[in-house]
Design a protein around this nucleic acid. Structure first.
Lengths: 342, 342
DNA sequence: CTAGATTTGTCCGTATGTATC
DNA sequence: GGATACATACGGACAAATCTA
């Protein structure tokens, strides 16, 4: 590879890592010459490339600074990268709707597998996206920690971002997610209307999932107590952990109780457990709809996957088309309660 | 978009569709001017771009022709597109190993969802890949029909291709797949060594899957008869269809028999059926390993997913590095028989 | 072999819109 | 606001290579 391309890559890397500090002023051309042992022509050629791609801009007598866009980047929606844990059971549905929306508008969707949020903590992935001029990203991340500093830098140099299933609002990206509060409250009230006993919540421990936090909060709010929240560890086998938890609850006489599960697999595991132990009559509800649930007397909160996917695509289009006028927004979409009465 | 870029896209589209006939000679610059109502400068600029990217070449006094490489294309392995049915149960394992191999060598892997092979029949997808300069493709396709003409054109203009799980040999792509013959013969012989009765094969009807054809052939060969092959329709619910088939076989007194299943889900469905009807003692085997199989007395043929994935990546690297010297090869890798004795 | 037609390669000048100085 | 540079686009002219009659 030519010297100026190597330097260009290096500068891009530095920009993404935030090495150029708060003012975002690059070293002068002269300094770069000395640092990398290159002639001024080569340095200028590298900077020219970055300017062409809109990553930096330079003012005579002042220096070269990293771009600091706040709005959307007017590029093409040809290609969208969807960063997600591909094997999450609900990815299939989201993916299908998202891809359909994208293809109807002539966009190609490529997926980047993200094992448990690891992709989010590395600049490396975004460095590669920028190198390949992939500037439209939808992120479905399953960790609570997000490097907003990095996202801010990405936005500044011209990357369009949409976060899916994310609890924080931010001004660097649109956020599209389920109305978790509505989901929990709806299910709780439906259960309460047919059952006057204790209702407990089963979620994931360690607050690994952003939506989990919101669901727990909503449950505390609607139930008026913190005592009914139980968790299984995140990342382990859900079936095993749920059964283990329910067994302990039964021994401790916390069961019988109504059970509100924070997601589908937990709900299904609970349904099987209840049937096996003759506790079918207890009200059971879960966020997320899984076809197999129809075999059990339970409730599910179906996420509006189609609407979520279409909204995510639409916001990416807005960022592309409205450029500087774009302003980050957050969207909570509501699903619906489904009753399975067998 | 500028006129010359529009023309460039149009020409690329025509090239991929094979519109320029056998000789692959593009219209003259003058003809293109008339056809599209553009000046010669604009036409030449579009052609220049295509030349730069290696898609066409022109000789003074002769004309412009579409490139006709036969070897690999020396590009960068930065980005690899893996076209596959993402939700195939075995994709997860292949994907994981492939991505690991790729990341160890600094390549980024992006997935393109391919619903039942539809992506293969459209030039559109490859057109987009070329537009984005994505020139390394691994294809895991689940249909028997492949447009080798298209692949040949893709190879000619500089796309590197590896086919996974494919039965045909071709000189335009490397092929990496399971040694299907070895799989069927190994399982058959293991069953025969403990069971002297009739052994039947359950596969998919309609020959939808390339590997399916090979597995049926191998079974006919090793069993010495065509009569023991039964099929369920491809694309329907495997569990339901398998149970339906076995029920018919039981009524027709074809069961009891040893059962060799062409894939894992069929094997699991059969295992459940046999247990339910007290036929646990019948020998049962399946190609593909699924953890849940451990709960039943059966055999599985574990595909060498790691080796398959690494080989696929390695061949892509060969196509990149060896350029014109590369020659297409086909690789059949062997797995191993696993016994579950409960 | 030559002459002429064809086709690409390389100039020239002109004009416009945009971004930068 | 004027000057400059650059990318895009058009028209024309001629040179150089190639093919064909």
């Amino acid at each position: 590879m030519s010297l100026y391309l190597t330097l260009k890559d290096q500068l891009l890397k530095n920009i993404l890592e935030g090495s150029y500090g708060s003012g975002s002023v690059l070293p002068t051309e002269h300094e770069l010459c000395e640092q990398y042992g290159l002639s001024r022509v080569t340095v200028r050629k590298a900077l020219d490339e970055l300017k062409k791609e809109g990553l930096v801009s330079s003012v005579q007598g002042q220096g070269t600074i990293v771009s600091h866009r706040r709005g959307g980047f007017h590029s093409s929606l040809d290609l969208i990268a969807l960063v997600a844990p591909v094997h999450s059971p609900f990815f299939a549905s989201f993916m299908e709707f998202f891809e359909r929306a994208a293809e109807e508008n002539g966009s190609l969707v490529l997926f980047k597998q993200d094992f448990k949020g690891s992709a989010l903590h590395s600049d490396e992935l975004y460095f590669r996206f920028m190198k390949k001029n992939i500037r439209n990203i939808v992120l479905w991340q399953q960790t609570e920690r997000i490097d907003f500093e990095l996202f801010s830098r990405l936005r500044a140099i011209g990357m369009n971002l949409v976060l899916f299933d994310q609890m924080y609002e931010t001004d660097v990206a649109d956020v599209v997610c389920l109305d978790n509060h509505h989901a929990v409250v709806s299910l709780f009230n439906e259960m309460r209307s047919v059952y006057s006993g204790k209702i407990i919540f089963i979620g994931f421990g360690g607050m690994a999932l952003p939506s989990e936090v919101l669901r727990e909060q909503a449950f505390m709010e609607v139930s008026g107590t913190e005592s009914g929240i139980y968790t299984i560890p995140w990342g382990h086998d859900i079936e095993t952990e749920t059964i283990g938890l329910l067994e302990r609850l039964r021994v401790d006489h916390i069961l019988p109780a109504g059970i509100l599960c924070c997601n589908g697999p937990i709900g299904l595991a609970a349904a099987r457990y209840l049937r096996k132990h003759g506790m079918d009559h207890l009200p059971l509800a879960a966020i997320d709809y899984i076809p197999e649930m129809a075999e059990y007397p339970m409730m599910a909160y179906r996420q509006p996957m189609k609407e979520l996917a279409e909204k995510a695509y639409q916001r990416l289009a807005v960022q592309n088309n409205h450029g500087e006028d774009w302003q980050a927004r957050s969207f909570q979409l509501r699903g619906e309660v489904i009753h399975f009465d067998t």
